[in-house]
């Protein structure tokens, strides 16, 4: 009996861990989406493409400039973030007075452009990016399970970044401005705070979070133009489930859904791709505003 249970655990553990790693990405991506949506009222469809850009920039930094993983982890989000700010200034800023759906359509077009450009430049087969060897120290070796250190690092790094973002928004002065500007932009502007610039910075920060997730993902998945598109639709479902009202809510929902997906892969593998959407349907039927949403 106990042996049987151990065997089950042996089978299940890797999938559950894999789920947690996926959850780490869901959390980072839905966090970025939630921050952008809160401030700009735009659903950033290009989020997946910007995630992919982060991974590609990391690969380019290594292959072309010899800058290793740690440098990329800082540089890639900055570079992609600056790109995001340029996009916000030149295009998205023109749409704030229009129906919010135009923001969705614009960023969808941007996602097509970015993906197409990378597919032309690098093909769709994918490029390898080796994880740095120092993560060997984090390897977890149980009798029944070997867990590569890099995956442990991804979960830690993602959780730390989410926590840091939460601290910045909840505990710092700039975070207070941000929260205030989300609620009442005109009033905040009347107090002399440059709200348009805050919007640019917010979009840049959200995009940088996506790129950070992309760098984290580069050693796990092959770096390819479609890597973002595969993630982003699931992340949309995660966002609908969590509701975009709270920062912590999107983080918790992201990790939880990754875990649930991993467990489903053990219990009923055929449903693992769709379980997030089924949960979305259930949440919509019972709490249409989302688990952490406010109306």
């Amino acid at each position: 009996m106990i042996e049987n249970l151990l065997f089950e655990l042996e089978m299940a553990a890797p999938q559950v861990i894999l789920g947690l790693v996926n959850g780490a990405f869901y959390a980072l991506l839905s966090l970025g989406l939630a921050i952008i949506f809160g401030m700009l009222n735009v659903i950033n469809f290009a989020h997946g493409a910007q995630f992919m850009m982060g991974a590609f920039v990391a690969w380019m930094l290594l292959a072309w400039a010899g800058i290793p993983y740690w440098g990329a982890l800082v540089l890639a989000p900055l570079l992609v973030g600056v790109f995001g700010m340029a996009v916000e200034r030149t295009m998205i800023a023109r749409l704030y007075k229009l129906d919010h759906l135009y923001g969705l359509l614009l960023t969808f077009g941007l996602a097509l452009i970015i993906e197409g450009v990378f597919r032309n430049g690098f093909g769709s087969s994918g490029l390898p990016y080796a994880p740095p060897p120092e993560f060997g120290a984090l390897d977890l070796d149980f009798d029944f399970l070997f867990l590569p250190g890099y995956r442990v690092w991804v979960v830690i790094a993602s959780a730390a970044m989410c926590l840091l973002t939460w601290l910045v928004i909840e505990k710092t002065k700039i975070g207070a401005y941000l929260r205030a500007a989300t609620e009442r932009p005109e009033l905040v502007q009347a107090f002399g705070i440059n709200v348009p610039r805050m919007m640019t910075l917010t979009y840049g920060a959200g995009v940088a979070l996506a790129a950070f997730a992309g760098v984290l993902a580069a050693p796990i998945y092959s770096v390819n133009p479609a890597m973002g598109a595969n993630f982003i639709i699931t992340v949309f479902a995660v966002v609908v489930i969590g509701g975009m009202g709270s920062i912590m809510g999107s983080v918790v929902t992201g990790f939880a859904l990754g875990l649930i997906e991993g467990m489903t892969r053990v219990i009923y593998p055929e449903a693992s791709a769709t379980v997030v959407f089924v949960i979305m349907a259930i949440v919509l039927l019972t709490r249409p505003a989302g688990l952490f949403g406010r109306g």
């Binding site: 749409l95 229009l98 359509l105 077009g109 097509l112 452009i113 197409g116």
Partner: peptide, 21 residues
């Protein structure tokens, strides 16, 4: 032109939303 079709479609999307609603 292969993958450039996607890029062109994206450009049309962006152009329509910005200038040609």
């Amino acid at each position: 032109f292969g993958a450039w079709v996607t890029v062109i479609q994206g450009v049309i999307f962006v152009a329509c939303v910005l200038a040609f609603r």
